[in-house]
């Protein structure tokens, strides 16, 4: 029953789970520090040296707050909303390869929880389920602002899922596989997919901003129009779950972008200096996390630089801008493969 492979997978799940939570926790701190830096302020600096304990203090505060479930709300669905939001955002990391793998005692253990042959579709499936957390929560609050926020979120996420899927199709055409592991392994050296798919990458990253409800597309929680958006009625840790899910989604999006378009755990020239496969794999993991941190920073950079879109602008961009561009990208990729043969 308890084979070494099973134990290894179990350890890996626990490690990825805790790493995800810690990174999401410190993303909240990083966001405020980056915002402070971009706006020429200091940011949090009271709790611990450089304010390093700020996320812990925030967590304690969230748990200590009074928890209010509105009397007119639908109680079960009110609780179900944040649970779904949190559960779905933690599911995606199962198919992301965090490194090539470790050889322990002659057996090869890949640093990935599950290598399913439809990896990308799994990511899309989980992302498309994620919208229910917001929708259910927004509706169950029985508040007009929450409902409007939830409706905005759902229509925004559905619209941008289409463009996202189309931008991935061009990538899949080029790599010839849906397995995330094979896509990551197919970008050795400097042959990152972003060099062959610049337009696809641009579409994908814009859609990733919209899917994670990050500024400039954070209309579901647009406070100038909707008070707090879909989580207006939420308090205590339920609100914390919604906010936290956004940061986890950001981490996962950064990981998916780095894996699909930026070579994943591959780094050019590194194979010349390190020969031991285990060390190489661990260094690859470090590089992957470097790329992920860069993209998390990029998410924050954009948030504190670009103002929020208007809702009709958002819809116009999605349906009239990105979807035709994504279809054009598929067409161009087909032409490229026809003339130059398959890349890689």
């Amino acid at each position: 029953m308890f084979t070494p492979a099973l134990i290894y997978i179990f350890i890996l799940i626990v490690v990825i789970f805790s790493v995800t939570l810690v990174i999401a926790m410190y993303s909240t701190y990083a966001e405020r520090k980056v915002a402070g830096f971009l706006q020429d302020r200091l940011g949090p600096n009271r709790a611990g040296p450089f304010g390093i304990l700020q996320p812990v203090a925030d967590g304690v505060k969230m748990f200590m707050k009074e928890e209010i479930i509105p009397d007119v709300s639908n109680k079960w669905l009110f609780i179900l909303g944040p649970s779904v939001a949190m559960a779905t955002c933690l599911m995606t990391s199962a198919v992301i390869p965090f490194g090539s793998g470790l050889t322990i005692g002659g057996t090869f253990y890949p640093m990935q929880v599950a290598d399913v042959n439809i990896g990308i579709l799994y990511v899309f499936g989980v992302v498309s389920i994620g919208v229910y957390g917001i929708m259910i929560g927004g509706w169950a609050s029985n508040n007009k602002y929450s409902l409007l926020g939830a409706l905005r979120a759902s229509s925004q996420m559905i619209s941008y899922e289409v463009a996202m899927g189309l931008s991935i199709i061009a990538l899949v055409m080029m790599t010839g596989t849906l397995s995330v592991r094979e896509i990551a392994a197919g970008q050795p050296g400097g042959h990152w997919n972003v060099l062959y798919q610049p337009l696809g990458f641009l579409i994908f990253i814009i859609c990733a901003f919209a899917e994670t409800n990050r500024a400039p597309f954070d209309l579901p929680e647009c406070e100038t129009e909707l008070v707090g958006g879909y989580h207006t009625e939420y308090s205590s840790m339920k609100l914390g779950f919604y906010l936290f899910a956004e940061y986890i989604n950001m981490f996962i999006s950064a990981a998916v972008i780095s894996t699909l378009y930026f070579g994943g755990y591959n780094m050019p020239f590194i194979g010349r200096f390190i020969t031991d496969p285990n060390t190489l794999s661990l260094v690859g993991t470090a590089f992957l996390f470097g790329k992920i941190f860069f993209f998390i920073f990029f998410f924050m950079w954009v948030r504190w630089t670009i103002p929020r879109f208007r809702y009709d602008q958002l819809m116009n961009l999605g349906w009239k801008g990105l979807i035709p561009l994504a279809i054009l990208n598929i067409f161009l990729t087909g032409l490229g493969m026809w003339f130059f043969g398959k890349v890689g």
Binding site: F124, G125, V127, S128, I129, V131, Y132, M135, W139, L151, S154, S155, I158, E161
Partner: peptide
Amino acid sequence: AGAIMVLFLY
């Protein structure tokens, strides 16, 4: 589950 039911719910 991801697209059609979201529209239903909507």
